[in-house]
Simulated assay, not measured.
Amino acid sequence: MTKYSTIEYERTDATAHVRLDRPDAMNALNAEILGEFEDAIARAEADDDVRVVVVAGHGPAFSSGYDISGAGEKGSVDDRILNQRSHLEAVFSARKPVIAAVDGAALAGGCNLAIACDLTFATERSEFGYPDMHFGEPPPKFVLPFVANSLKHARELLYSGKSVDAEEARRMGLVNHVVPDGELGAAVDEEIARIRKTPSAGVAVVKDMLNDVQETQGYRRYGRVDEFMGTLTMESETATEFRERRDEDGLQAAIEWMHETDKP
């Protein structure tokens, strides 16, 4: 059986639970956790007894986004981020429904992962957004415009880099249901029970058809375009200075500069 060091995988009845397990780093997404995540999704896909996959996070956050600290890893952090999109593709192409169970912050790459899932449940204390826009780096894959109720909502979040609470995220279309803190597991289990009343083949066919709608709208194509644009914006003056401050003064100092300074 596969052993993981940055996630937990557990199957209970017909549900595969995939839990991000870097709580000390707010489940930041580095190369290791993303590789293990993709393996876990493939493992659930191959298990005929699994009907639904639930993605959650241990600790105070769902995920704070891509790990830009780079501690102990080889190569440029930014290069690694640009090459780490396949976890979203794994969720999209899985023939089984993938539900995000968000309890806490789902930010930047963590927000992308949460809203890329077929369904998204969140506790009242959760928050969503793209604070990485403050240092001039758009999401490395555009998911938000294909999920938000309108492009105006997508523009609002991406232009400002602000975060919104779970109820506002639900109003914008990023979240299906908001539940009181402590009731997330029960709400997700109730939804899974409803899904299991539909034949698995029917669910798989409908997911394929809905994915086709997104592809017709340009989901995969704009993902590739955004990778190109992301590479360009990472070379902007603001993004370059952010990385220099991060490398010289530490991540926290760079983040404080990011929030306090008007950008060109």
Rank of each mutant, 00 (worst) to 15 (best):
K74I: 06
G75D: 05
V77Q: 07
V77W: 10
V77G: 12
V77C: 14
R80W: 14
I81V: 15
L82C: 07
Q84L: 15
Q84I: 14
Q84K: 13
L88M: 15
L88P: 09
E89D: 13
A90H: 01
F92M: 06
F92H: 06
S93E: 15
A94V: 11
R95Y: 13
R95T: 13
R95P: 06
K96Q: 06
K96P: 03
P97Y: 13
V98P: 10
A101N: 02
A101Q: 05
V102S: 04
G104I: 14
G104R: 06
A105F: 03
A105C: 02
A105H: 07
A106L: 13
A106N: 12
A108Q: 14
G110H: 14
C111H: 07
A116Y: 05
A116R: 11
C117Q: 05
D118W: 00
L119A: 13
T120D: 03
F121D: 07
A122I: 09
E127M: 11
E127P: 00
G129I: 06
D132V: 13
D132G: 08
D132L: 12
D132Q: 14
M133C: 10
H134T: 02
H134L: 07
H134R: 08
F135E: 11
F135K: 13
G136I: 03
P138S: 02
P138C: 04
P139G: 13
K141N: 08
K141D: 04
F142C: 04
F142M: 13
L144K: 01
P145G: 08
S150N: 02
L151S: 10
K152V: 00
H153A: 05
A154C: 05
A154L: 00
A154F: 00
L158S: 02
Y159V: 05
Y159R: 10
S160M: 00
G161P: 03
G161H: 06
V164K: 06
D165P: 04
D165G: 14
A166P: 09
A166K: 03
E167N: 06
E168I: 01
E168R: 09
A169S: 12
A169Y: 03
R171M: 14
M172Y: 08
G173L: 03
G173R: 12
G173D: 04
L174N: 05
N176A: 05
H177C: 08
G182Y: 05
G182W: 06
G182E: 09
G182L: 10
E183F: 01
A186R: 12
A186D: 15
D189A: 10
E191V: 01
E191I: 02
E191D: 03
I192E: 02
